[in-house]
Simulated scan of single mutants.
Amino acid sequence: MKIRELIDTARIPGGDELRLYRRGDDFIIAIGGNELMNSRMSGSEEALAVMSCARLRKPETAQLLIGGYGMGFTLRAALAALGPDAKIIVAELVPEIIDWARGPMAGLAAGCLDDPRVELVIGDVAAAIAAGRGRYDAILLDVDNGPDGLVRAANDGIYSAAGLASAKAALRPGGVLAIWSAAPDARFTRRLAAAGFRVEEVAVRARTGGKGARHMIWFARVG
């Protein structure tokens, strides 16, 4: 049996402690008794990027905001789907996450943070959304376990009526707000519709190849 080795810890601003583990060739990021990310399960995070980019009007020149770097699965998939003149801003609240990406998980990151199309912002994605009125073709959010904040209570604000109004204002006409969740949430679907979005719900598998647990992605379009 492979032993799970603790590599490092990080404190979430306004939240609990994250732990980075390695088990053999796999990496795990956990909070308390909950496993948030596992390098063996990238399917739904990649789908968040691939399916969002497929809904863009001009992927070759699109402007994207990704909330939460995680293990970089969404960023790498977006880079592969977008053209050379696209731009991706990655907002990551916990600086140690980026340290891990450039350190013990550098092989997994595969240099994605150094792509010239990427701008890294250390801070709350809510601030990047609020500052980007009419700027983005898509906003991709994977900052928690879903609309029910697990990692940080303040994340609830992103998914509130006010938070959704801010995201809508930051999108260009035809823009897409894409939100990853570990589980469905009918109340949140109704909240998106009430905010004026055209809503599409898509169930995806946690692992590539259609395996693993079912996760949910909402695609909420402006106009």
Rank of each mutant, 00 (worst) to 15 (best):
A203I: 12
S44P: 09
D8M: 00
A110T: 08
I158R: 04
V118T: 08
G33M: 08
A131D: 15
L141W: 03
L141M: 09
F73P: 08
T9M: 07
G32Q: 05
A195S: 11
V121S: 07
E201Y: 08
V90A: 07
H215D: 10
D26Y: 14
G107C: 13
A62W: 10
M105Y: 01
M51Y: 10
D144W: 01
L82R: 06
G32A: 00
M216I: 11
V143A: 03
L48S: 02
A195M: 10
N38M: 02
R117M: 08
G33Q: 12
R117C: 11
A169G: 08
E60P: 12
G132Q: 08
A54S: 10
R221V: 12
G33P: 11
A170P: 15
D16G: 13
L64G: 10
P184K: 00
M71I: 08
L20V: 11
L150Y: 15
A213H: 13
C53R: 04
Y21T: 05
A193W: 02
I139H: 01
A213F: 04
S44V: 11
G196P: 10
R117Q: 10
H215Y: 10
G157H: 03
R55S: 02
G43C: 11
A49Y: 03
C112R: 13
E92K: 05
V118P: 14
K211H: 01
E119V: 06
P59Y: 00
A165F: 08
V94T: 05
A126P: 13
I139A: 08
A182Y: 05
A153G: 15
P95R: 00
A10I: 10
D8R: 02
S181T: 07
A162G: 07
L150D: 03
G209A: 01
L65V: 14
L79P: 15
A213Y: 02
I7V: 14
M105D: 01
L177F: 07
F27H: 04
E35R: 13
G24L: 10
V202P: 03
L192D: 11
P84S: 00
R190L: 12
R19T: 10
L120T: 12
R207M: 09
G212E: 04
P147V: 02
T61E: 13
D148M: 07
L82G: 05
P173C: 09
A91M: 04
E200L: 14
R135S: 12
V151P: 02
A203Y: 10
E45M: 10
F73R: 03
S160Y: 05
